[in-house]
Computed example of a mutant assay.
Amino acid sequence: MFQTRLIRHCSGFSLIELVTTILIVGIIAVFVLPKLLPESSYSAYTLRNEFISELRQVQIKALNNSDRCYRISVVSDGYQLTTYRHNVSSAFTGCIDSQLIRTDLKQTFNGGAYIELASNSSTSFSMDFDNLGRTTLNCSGNCFVVIAGETLNIAMESEGYVHAL
Rank of each mutant, 00 (worst) to 15 (best):
F2E: 13
Q3W: 10
Q3K: 15
T4W: 08
R5E: 12
L6D: 12
S14N: 11
L15T: 06
V19P: 07
I22W: 03
V25L: 15
I27W: 06
I27K: 00
V30G: 03
L33P: 07
P34C: 06
K35M: 11
L36K: 12
P38T: 06
E39D: 08
Y45Q: 15
L47A: 00
L47P: 04
N49G: 07
E50V: 04
I52G: 05
I52E: 02
I52K: 02
R56V: 02
R56S: 04
Q57T: 12
Q57C: 05
Q59A: 05
I60M: 14
K61V: 02
K61Q: 13
A62S: 15
A62E: 08
L63W: 08
L63I: 09
L63S: 04
S66E: 02
D67E: 14
C69Y: 04
R71A: 09
V74P: 00
S76M: 04
Y79F: 12
Q80W: 07
T83Q: 11
R85N: 13
H86W: 11
H86I: 06
H86L: 12
N87L: 14
N87K: 11
N87W: 06
S90F: 00
A91C: 00
A91L: 05
T93D: 05
C95L: 02
C95I: 04
D97A: 11
L100S: 10
L100E: 10
R102F: 15
T103F: 11
D104R: 12
L105G: 09
L105M: 10
K106I: 10
Q107N: 13
T108I: 13
F109W: 00
N110L: 15
N110P: 09
G111R: 12
E116R: 07
E116K: 10
E116T: 08
E116P: 05
L117K: 04
S124M: 10
F125M: 06
S126D: 13
S126P: 08
M127A: 04
M127H: 03
F129Y: 10
F129W: 04
F129A: 01
N131M: 08
N131L: 09
T136N: 14
L137C: 06
N138G: 11
N138T: 10
C139N: 10
S140W: 08
N142T: 13
N142K: 14
C143E: 01
V145H: 05
V146N: 03
I147V: 15
I147T: 15
A148M: 02
A148K: 03
T151N: 10
L152I: 06
N153D: 12
I154V: 09
M156N: 05
E157I: 06
S158Q: 15
E159P: 10
Y161H: 11
V162N: 06
V162G: 02
A164T: 09
L165D: 13
